[in-house]
Simulated assay, not measured.
Amino acid sequence: MTDLDQAIVSALRDRAEGAVDTRLLTARAVAGGQARRRRRRMAAGAALGLTAVLSVGVAAGPPESGSPPPAAAPVRLVVAPPRVDGIAGAATRPDLVGADPKVLHFGVDPARGRYLGWAVAEGVESVRIDVGSGRTVSVDLARSSSALSERPMEGLEVGLRELATEAAFDGRTVTVADGSRQVRVRHWQPSRGLYARAVVIDGPQAELLVAADALRWDEPRRCTAPIQLTTLPPGAAVASCRVDVSAFPGRLNGTLTLVRGTDQLMSVSLEYNEGIEGGRTAANRTVDGRPAYLYPTGRQLELLGIPKAHLTAMFGWPGSGFTEADAATALGGVRLADDLARPESWR
């Protein structure tokens, strides 16, 4: 339900036992929506960690006497990973793509596409963007065609591996069926040594071209998340970073994956949801003096006491590798953003 819908419901409820004044109803709904938008603009603040761009359309001229105030265009909040100085972009150094889980070596022009998420994992850098249709266009970038062929697309049952042949990276678009859905896939080489793939579900080919035009190959950005790990288990390293801001500012998810050796994995994830009214309070463990909860499976440890959020470490899969002590070490050193709903507080 949108802010406007909620305001209308509230107005109807208030006047449920009398006649409804449609002008008053519209005026209250619009005014309520505008007030909420103003509060959200103020919360966005000046972007220090991430770039927050607000675009607001305002109707010109005063309303006619007795008429409800004109509705402003919806506020558009764009969250983007911050630029990184002193690092070459993908166009200049394609050999760096996917090598550092903390860096995306390309970016998106915020005037052409809105970030829905970003990730660096297994040698592939990825962004998910909305180019104006409300659909998601997923873009993956790698140093080789084989790296993309080994990377499955989340949410798809159909495999894309056989499509990512070396010869396919000539700009062509292929359409494949995934049940009742039509999946359009475009492969191309932005420059020598770079391999890109764009995917849209039930969308036109034109959206793939718009997304490609929105990419900036000389804009390295930090794969930042609202959590940072300041202590790692012995022998562990951060291998991947994933952030989902598609429902920001109401919800966001960030996950850092740790590896040790060739077969040990542990993920540390933050799930924020402004709709969470309360969290687990019964602790059965402590982490650095703070209450924590070990789930019955023995493979998930949650650090408690974080408002509107769950901070957990998943470990021990598939039955070996990282331990509860390792999870406690990672969670004990987690540094949270000052305010999870304010991207400028992310470091």
Rank of each mutant, 00 (worst) to 15 (best):
A7I: 01
L104P: 01
G155I: 05
L4T: 07
D263H: 12
P226N: 03
K102M: 12
G61P: 01
A47E: 14
T255P: 09
N273F: 08
V210S: 09
W188V: 02
G305L: 01
R151K: 09
D21N: 13
Q6E: 14
E17W: 09
S246T: 05
V124M: 06
A7W: 08
A283S: 01
N253C: 14
D21E: 02
E302A: 05
G134R: 09
A11Q: 09
T173K: 05
V158R: 09
E302Q: 03
F248Y: 15
P81R: 04
V137E: 00
P226I: 01
I129P: 10
A46E: 15
R151D: 04
G113E: 05
A11C: 12
G57E: 15
A31T: 05
L252H: 00
S180R: 14
V127Q: 01
Q228F: 06
A11P: 01
T165A: 13
G250E: 15
Q34D: 11
D202P: 00
E150T: 07
V124A: 06
G250H: 12
V20T: 07
V176P: 03
A35L: 12
A283Y: 00
D202G: 03
F322T: 06
E277N: 10
D5Q: 14
Q182S: 15
R242K: 14
G319L: 00
T255R: 11
A73L: 11
